[in-house]
Write a protein that binds this DNA or RNA. Structure first.
Length: 425
RNA sequence: GGAGAGGUGGCUGAGUGGUCGAAAGCGCUCCCCUGCUAAGGGAGUAUACCCUUAACAGGGUAUCGAGGGUUCGAAUCCCUCCCUCUCCGCCA
């Protein structure tokens, strides 16, 4: 959420940013300010009343200590009246605070000035591209290849779990594991700390990174035990330092974590989601950064670069999009999407999304650091996929397939993989 | 899963109804002292919010695992939940 103080002082800036992000109801800003004022008035009243009764309680203590019981009883009688009043005002104050914060959560993070203003996909800017997309006609989409060879077993996945839960077999399973290791090792080589996280989180964590209440439908829920299977490693890893004040010299913190991800993907079916394009369970290597506010946009560039290099090393043509204001997420101030070319489908597939959340996410997490003045300050958080596995797998299968229906192993993986060619098993 | 013990500031740890946001020690910061080092002396050292102020700063409120209750007054008493430790059971 945004800093209430900032909203108080910059309501017009907030509205402008909201409009750019495609929010229609700007009245929420005024309502926040209104309820905030109500709350502040109540705080003053309650604090005064409490100060008064604190003073009296102390007097009573002193009087009783001195044995002046009658005087003490007199004050007690006075005070018990005020008690009711405090209770009532406290209730009002709490509900005003709650209302204000709920409204505040409806205000999105504001876009950075470098983000193109626009309303949809068509306004996203291609800022970088690498490699030549292969538009020849003979390449099969990965699902045809995978089904025919039995490398990826969608049908048995349906039997055992459901649609969107495939089995990977033999060399393709091995290729996936090799890719995961490759991605992690690359990040570790760049100074990221590897983290193995829980795959389930509690409600506080889901709330911390904003899955609740905005994106509840995205997650599976294990209601009986109060867990949510993670939709992305962003959730456990960013929550790692929730409610902490980090020593300033520890920043920037950079983490890399491999996890499976579970997403309900309610309502998405059809051609675009065939094969590996969209799954209920998939693997992802995620990069998370916790940085000083003044560094966060620079850190976003290096984060994006970290992800881009992986595709280059794999020899997969891709392009990088700077998302426009209208196509950005609620909590993001700036976001890049990396799209790999899928030569079998003749389309771009999103394999990474690198975002700067500035202090928006960290405020909710109470994730702070001690700045150079020794004062606690909200840190900035960033994350990006490096990379999401299924679509990279799809692109590899399609781009590296041979006319005999085999798949070459990308050179950078050959040694780790222990082979150069994946043949039908 | 059963039985018991416990959760206090950066850390250790005292505090079982009143002047306790909290003793003491350690750590940290600044100052003094001492040729250097070590030792010693003094001061300071949580977080959030609100109010006043141009600012420096000052005042107030809340917070002793979380939430609720009793009371004029709760770290201290009661209830619920969470977590940690010990023993037993189970288990990769």
């Amino acid at each position: 959420m945004l800093d209430i103080q900032f909203v108080r002082e910059n309501s017009e800036t907030v509205k402008t940013g909201m409009k750019q992000k495609g929010e229609e109801d700007l009245s929420v800003v005024d309502r926040v300010l209104e309820v905030d004022q109500t709350w502040r008035d109540l705080v003053v009243q309650v604090d005064e009343l409490r100060a008064e009764s604190n003073t009296k309680a102390k007097q009573i203590g002193v009087l009783k200590g001195e044995g002046k019981h009658e005087e003490a009883d007199r004050i007690i009688r006075e005070t018990s009246k005020a008690k009711e009043e405090v209770k009532e005002l406290e209730k009002k104050m709490q509900s005003a605070k709650k209302e204000r914060d709920e409204l505040l959560l409806k205000i999105p993070n504001l876009p950075h000035e470098s983000v193109p203003v626009g309303s949809g996909e068509e306004d996203n800017k291609v800022v970088h591209s690498w490699g030549e997309p292969d538009r020849s006609d003979w390449r099969k989409p990965h699902w045809e290849l995978a089904e025919r060879t039995g490398w990826i077993d969608f049908d048995r996945g349906v039997k055992v779990a459901g649609a969107g839960f495939p089995f990977y077999r033999g060399d393709v399973a091995r290729l996936q594991r090799t890719l995961i290791n490759f991605f992690i090792d690359e990040a570790v080589g760049q100074g990221y700390e590897e983290l193995q996280s829980p795959f389930f989180v509690n409600e506080d964590s889901a709330r911390g990174t904003g899955q609740i209440p905005d994106k509840e439908d995205m997650m599976y829920e294990i209601a009986r035990d109060g867990f949510f299977p993670i939709p992305t490693a962003e959730v456990p890893v960013t929550n790692f330092h929730r409610d902490e004040i980090l020593p300033g010299q520890e920043l920037p913190l950079r983490y890399v974590a491999y996890t499976p991800c579970w997403r309900r993907e309610a309502g998405s079916h059809g051609k675009d989601v065939r094969g590996l394009n969209r799954l209920h369970q998939f693997d992802k290597v995620e990069l998370v950064k916790i940085v000083r506010p003044e560094d966060s946009y620079e850190e976003l560039e290096s984060l994006r670069r970290q992800a881009e290099v992986l595709l280059e090393k794999l020899g997969l043509p891709y392009r990088t999009l700077l998302m426009c204001t209208g196509d950005m997420g609620f909590t993001q101030s700036k976001k890049y999407d990396l799209e790999v070319w899928s030569p079998g489908q003749k389309r771009w597939l999103e394999v990474s999304s690198c975002s700067n959340f500035t202090d928006y996410q960290a405020r909710r997490l109470m994730l702070r650091y001690r700045n150079d003045d020794g004062k606690p300050e909200i840190a900035h958080t960033l994350n990006g996929s490096g990379l999401a596995l299924p679509r990279v797998m799809a692109a590899i299968l399609e781009a590296y397939q041979t006319e005999e229906g085999k798949v070459e192993v990308p050179e950078v993986l050959q040694e780790r993989m222990g082979k150069k060619l994946i043949a039908e098993s």
